[in-house]
Structure formats: structure tokens, C-alpha cells
């Protein structure tokens, strides 16, 4: 079997029995956006806008390099964006424009008084 066949046949997340780095018993407290991402994933699943299975498929479709470089919830958010484009629910331009707006808002007001919200 050629290596290109092996590459095509194994999804990036299918790791059972594969060589791996040393095991480390690591954990971290979720950042607020990570927690929001997890909750958003649940809500998208409840509405069947993006089901859990579509999310898994969308993450696999990011490819080996992006899966390797991105963190767990970073992969989810990237997959959500692409799936929403595919479904015609958002366009790439709409998201890019909104991200620019959000980013400038965060820069202008990096640590606002929560009480003023």
C-alpha cells in the first residue's frame, strides 16, 4: 500500500494505536471564550444548525496541519465558520467584517467596567 493511500484512508483524528508523544496528565481552566465556544456548540446542536456529528466532520475536514496547530476549541470555531458558509447561513465577507468590528471594539475598550454594560 502506498503512503498516499494510507494518508487518504486515515482521518486526522483517528489516533487509536498510533505512535504518540509521552502521556502527561495535563488540564487547564477554560478561558471564557472557550467556555462560550462549548456552550455555542451545544446550542448549535440543539437547533440542528450544526449537529455534533457535523462538527466532528467539519473538524476532520480542516486537515492534518490545521488540526495539529490549533487548540481544541480553536478547531471547533474554525469548523463552525466553514460549515455556516457551506449552509449559506453566513458569508465569508459577513464574518470577516464582523470580526474586524469586534476586534476594534475589544482594542478600544480592552477592560471596560462590567457594571457599565
Amino acid at each position: 500500500m502506498t503512503s498516499i493511500e494510507d494518508f487518504m484512508r486515515r482521518l486526522p483524528n483517528d489516533v487509536g494505536g498510533q505512535p504518540s508523544p509521552a502521556f502527561q496528565r495535563v488540564d487547564h481552566e477554560l478561558k471564557p471564550w472557550e467556555k462560550r465556544c462549548h456552550a455555542l456548540a451545544d446550542v448549535l446542536d440543539f437547533h440542528k444548525i450544526i449537529s455534533t456529528e457535523e462538527k466532528r466532520r467539519g473538524v476532520e475536514a480542516l486537515g492534518t496541519e490545521m488540526i495539529g496547530r490549533l487548540g481544541y476549541y480553536e478547531r471547533w470555531l474554525t469548523a463552525f465558520a466553514v460549515i455556516l458558509f457551506q449552509k449559506g447561513l453566513l458569508t465569508p465577507t459577513q464574518l470577516a467584517e464582523r470580526m474586524a468590528v469586534v476586534e476594534s471594539r475589544f482594542r478600544a475598550d480592552p477592560a471596560p467596567d462590567p457594571a457599565a454594560a
Binding site: R36, M99, E103
Partner: peptide, 19 residues
């Protein structure tokens, strides 16, 4: 104080707002 906004914090917020 110093860092730029986290790219994925921005992405999550933008997605949630648009949806």
C-alpha cells in the same frame, strides 16, 4: 494590559453576534 485581542475570542464573539 498589553496583548492584542485573542483571535478566537474575536471569532467566537463575531459568530455568536451574527447567529
Amino acid at each position: 494590559e498589553t496583548g492584542p485581542p485573542d483571535y478566537f475570542d474575536v471569532l467566537e464573539t463575531a459568530l455568536e453576534e451574527l447567529l
